[in-house]
Every structure is written in C-alpha cells, then in structure tokens.
C-alpha cells in the first residue's frame, strides 16, 4: 500500500557568505495513513523548521539547493508547477501551523478575514458559508464566536495559537504540519492545545507531522517518532520503540535529558555544541559529542541500520553488534 506521504532524500540548503547551510540534508520518512501522527524531534537548529518549509515549498531567496521527492498518494509534489502547488497542495493537501503563532497573524485584519480568506479566493466560494465554517472551527478549538471580529493584538498567545489552528483546518487538509505549536505557551495552555490535537486525530483522523524539540511532548501524541540531528535524521521507529529502547546515542541522550518527576536522578545535558551546518563533522555528524564514538565514526557516514520492528538508526554501533551477532 502506498503511504499517504512519502518523503525521499529531501534537501534544502541555504546560500550564505560562508558557504551553503545544509539545513535539510537528505531526509526520508513517511506518514503511513490518515490519522497517523509522526513526530520530528531534534534540538534547536537541527533543521526541523526548514524541513517543514521545504514540504510547503516556503523558500527564502537564498536557496542553494532544493530537491528530493515528496510523494503524496504516490504523486510527486516536487514536480508540480508553483501555481499548481499553490492551488492544490497548500492548505488542501498540507496545512501548516507555523512556529511562533504570535507573529503568524496579520495585525491589521480581523480574525474572521484571516481565517476565511483562503477559502474565499477559490472561485464560487460563498462568504456566508465560509464564515459559518470559520465559526464552527473556532468553536471547535475552544474560542468564543465573537472572536471573529477581533484583531490579533486583542488576543492572548493561547488564543492566537487556536486561531492559527482553526485557520489551518479551513480547507480540510489531509496532513497538518505543526511546527512547535506549543513552545511559546504556558503549561496549562500547552496541555489544552495538546488535547485539542489529540481530539483532531481521534475524531477527524487527521494525519499530522508534529515538530518539537521536546521528546516528552511528542510522546503524548505521536504514533511514530523521527529524531533529527544536524540536518539529517538519525533514528526512527514507533513511539514505544524509540522511547523505551533508543538505539542512537543521541536519542538516548535526548531521552535522558527529560526531567522526571519521580526519579531522583538529575536530567542529563547533552555536552558540546550543535554541529555547524556549513561545515558539518565528517562521518557521523554526532561523533564530536558522542560518548561511544569509535574508529569508523569520524570518517564513514553511518547508513541506516535496522534495529528490529519498525525501528531504524544511523549509528555504527548497530552495524557492529550485527556484525558480531
């Protein structure tokens, strides 16, 4: 069966005076079917936002390289013209909630305008219909009806986040990309938004790509998890696999750094600095920070190794154990 979304070897590099920044450097993953939520987890600067933007074809002027395959129901979206991509993919196939909802709204238009405008640029759209749907969605995300006439500066951060979410649902997208949808919110609002997302998954069968730097948060919602590091993906698997038996040393550190309420052990911090994406470390990009680094790590790029079940990881340790066992 063809997966809903199949991303293969996606690359997005930015041109800078120092040379190209390899923010997304050949990543592959898939979302199997509607209702599946895939989490992309990684530290700041690992290229998560860039990857989401690459999927939506939101590109800055200084793009140096942009290629790969994005197969949606088997059709390569990368091959579409800009105009078709805009009309057919954006907000229909994939909608996105951007990182930083605070600034995602136009300050001089009221909420109703902004939520409905995508629908209204379609020919034959009815304004009344659009507003009715907007009200419904706004209600769904837990906002009062009269919010439709309000302006962004009158709303709290949590309210804006919900508006942005409602806005993303207006065209009934098949896939929802959420880029750190809760990172600017306080804990209780964060929980509300997470519940909302769960509800969407449950009730609407919405497929999602949930981007976060917080693996604990991902565990709350995701079916599968992909770990990003330095513009690449280093591990993927089901939530249970990755969380309980992480194979890649970086994933292990990531999980160890989650503060645990009932555990006396101090959360660990990952030592060292994130890799420079202009001139990434040779071999395994994690090797300068890895406790287990050994002879092939700084020269040979580790391939994907199967780690049982759906789990895969890019670490020479796996190759070793395999070779031995």
């Amino acid at each position: 069966m063809t997966p809903l979304l199949d991303v293969r070897d996606l690359r997005l590099h930015y041109e800078t005076p120092r040379g190209p920044v390899r923010a997304v450097d050949g990543v592959s993953f898939e979302i199997g079917s509607p209702g599946e939520v895939v989490g992309i987890v990684g530290e700041s600067g690992s290229g998560k936002t860039s990857m989401a933007n690459a999927l939506m074809r939101i590109l800055p002027r200084n793009v140096a390289r942009y290629d790969g395959e994005v197969l949606y129901d088997g059709e390569d979206l990368m091959a579409l013209t800009d105009e078709r991509f805009r009309k057919e993919v954006r907000w229909r196939t994939m909608a996105m909630v951007f990182q930083g909802a605070m600034s995602s709204l136009n300050p001089v238009l009221n909420v109703g305008r902004q939520v409905t405008e995508r629908v209204l640029v379609e020919s034959g759209a009815s304004k009344r219909e659009a507003y009715r749907k907007a009200e419904e969605l706004l209600e769904l995300v837990g906002l009062p009806r009269d919010i439709i006439k309000r302006y962004p500066h009158e709303l709290s951060g949590g309210m804006k986040q919900r508006v942005v979410l409602a806005m993303a649902l207006m065209m009934d997208p098949r896939i929802l990309i959420l880029d750190e949808p809760t990172s600017a919110l306080d804990v209780s609002v964060q929980a509300q938004v997470m519940n909302l997302l769960k509800q969407l998954k449950r009730e609407r069968g919405m497929a999602m790509l949930f981007i976060t730097h917080d693996i604990a948060l991902a565990s709350d919602l995701c079916d599968r998890v992909v770990v990003a590091y330095g513009g690449e993906h280093v591990e993927s698997g089901t939530l249970a696999e990755v969380l309980t038996a992480p194979k890649h040393p970086y994933t292990q550190k990531l999980i160890a750094s989650i503060p645990r309420l009932h555990d006396p052990a101090q959360p660990e911090f990952i030592p060292g600095r994130p890799p420079d994406l202009v001139d990434p470390p040779s071999g395994c990009r994690f090797h300068p920070r890895c406790d287990f680094a050994f002879e092939p790590c700084d020269s040979d790029v580790p391939p994907w190794f199967e780690a049982g079940g759906a789990q895969h990881a890019r670490c020479w340790l796996l190759g070793q154990s395999k070779g031995r066992g």
Binding site: L12, L59, P60, R61, N62, Y66, D82, R86
Partner: peptide
C-alpha cells in the same frame, strides 16, 4: 542586502 521572505515563491526552482 538580500533578505529572505519577499517573493519566496519559486525562488529556488
């Protein structure tokens, strides 16, 4: 001098 953002559409292709 060449800020990102404006006219992002299709700039990369």
């Amino acid at each position: 001098g060449a800020p990102a953002g404006y006219r992002a559409l299709g700039a990369g292709r």
